[in-house]
Amino acid sequence: MNASRITLGSINVEAEEPGALATFWATVTGGTPAANGDSVYLPPVGPGGFAMFFQPLAGPRPDRLTIHLDLTVPWGARQGEVDRLVAGGATWQWDVLDEHPHVRWTTLADPEGNLFCVAEHPPTP
């Protein structure tokens, strides 16, 4: 079987305020947002980065999100990144620090309430 040729092109987000939400996520990723009408594109930063595309809400916001981003940082860097993101507008939700031996994470919400996690995995021996 051949390896998949599928790659992540962009994470698309509907937002009440696409420009403001793109600005928040630019602080997360380090990217520079580029507006085009009512939409904003946030390009990937570096070879391991990911792009995001923000557009106006097309309907009412769902009561419950069924998908969220898990962002990974180096071991020992999670709390510093969480502090940086909260200072930039994220809202702390909860920590999971000892439930699983292979990962610990903090769940945050962006300024529009979309959940995302910042996780760290211990180094492998």
Score class of each variant (00 low, 15 high):
residue 28 V to F: 12
residue 85 L to G: 02
residue 2 N to M: 10
residue 86 V to P: 08
residue 25 W to M: 05
residue 59 G to P: 08
residue 57 L to D: 07
residue 56 P to G: 05
residue 10 S to A: 15
residue 42 L to Q: 06
residue 26 A to S: 15
residue 3 A to F: 13
residue 26 A to G: 09
residue 51 A to M: 11
residue 120 E to N: 06
residue 36 N to L: 05
residue 61 R to M: 05
residue 93 Q to V: 08
residue 2 N to A: 11
residue 19 G to E: 15
residue 2 N to H: 09
residue 42 L to R: 03
residue 90 A to K: 12
residue 34 A to T: 11
residue 73 V to Y: 10
residue 93 Q to L: 04
residue 93 Q to F: 00
residue 56 P to D: 06
residue 49 G to S: 06
residue 55 Q to H: 07
residue 73 V to G: 07
residue 75 W to Q: 13
residue 41 Y to V: 05
residue 111 P to K: 02
residue 55 Q to N: 08
residue 19 G to R: 15
residue 104 R to M: 01
residue 41 Y to G: 04
residue 8 L to I: 14
residue 63 D to K: 10
residue 25 W to G: 00
residue 87 A to E: 15
residue 100 H to K: 13
residue 99 E to H: 12
residue 95 D to S: 15
residue 4 S to N: 08
residue 48 G to F: 13
residue 25 W to K: 08
residue 40 V to A: 11
residue 110 D to Y: 03
residue 100 H to C: 02
residue 24 F to I: 03
residue 94 W to N: 09
residue 120 E to V: 00
residue 46 G to L: 07
residue 57 L to P: 11
residue 71 L to K: 08
residue 78 R to W: 07
residue 57 L to H: 13
residue 112 E to I: 01
residue 42 L to P: 03
residue 36 N to F: 07
residue 93 Q to C: 00
residue 103 V to S: 02
residue 5 R to D: 12
residue 7 T to M: 12
residue 8 L to R: 06
residue 23 T to S: 14
residue 87 A to K: 15
residue 27 T to F: 10
residue 78 R to K: 14
residue 100 H to P: 00
residue 70 D to E: 14
residue 45 V to P: 01
residue 33 P to E: 03
residue 99 E to Y: 09
residue 122 P to H: 04
residue 42 L to N: 04
residue 7 T to L: 08
residue 26 A to P: 09
residue 89 G to C: 10
residue 44 P to Y: 03
residue 89 G to D: 11
residue 119 A to F: 07
residue 113 G to L: 03
residue 28 V to S: 12
residue 111 P to M: 02
residue 84 R to L: 10
residue 115 L to H: 13
residue 102 H to S: 11
residue 73 V to P: 10
residue 20 A to P: 02
residue 21 L to V: 02
residue 102 H to G: 01
residue 83 D to T: 06
residue 21 L to F: 09
residue 93 Q to M: 00
residue 107 T to I: 03
residue 65 L to A: 13
residue 38 D to P: 04
residue 21 L to D: 09
residue 104 R to H: 12
residue 64 R to P: 00
residue 107 T to E: 07
residue 12 N to R: 12
residue 41 Y to I: 02
residue 41 Y to M: 13
residue 114 N to T: 04
residue 45 V to E: 05
residue 70 D to K: 06
residue 97 L to G: 10
residue 8 L to S: 05
residue 21 L to P: 06
residue 51 A to P: 07
residue 113 G to S: 04
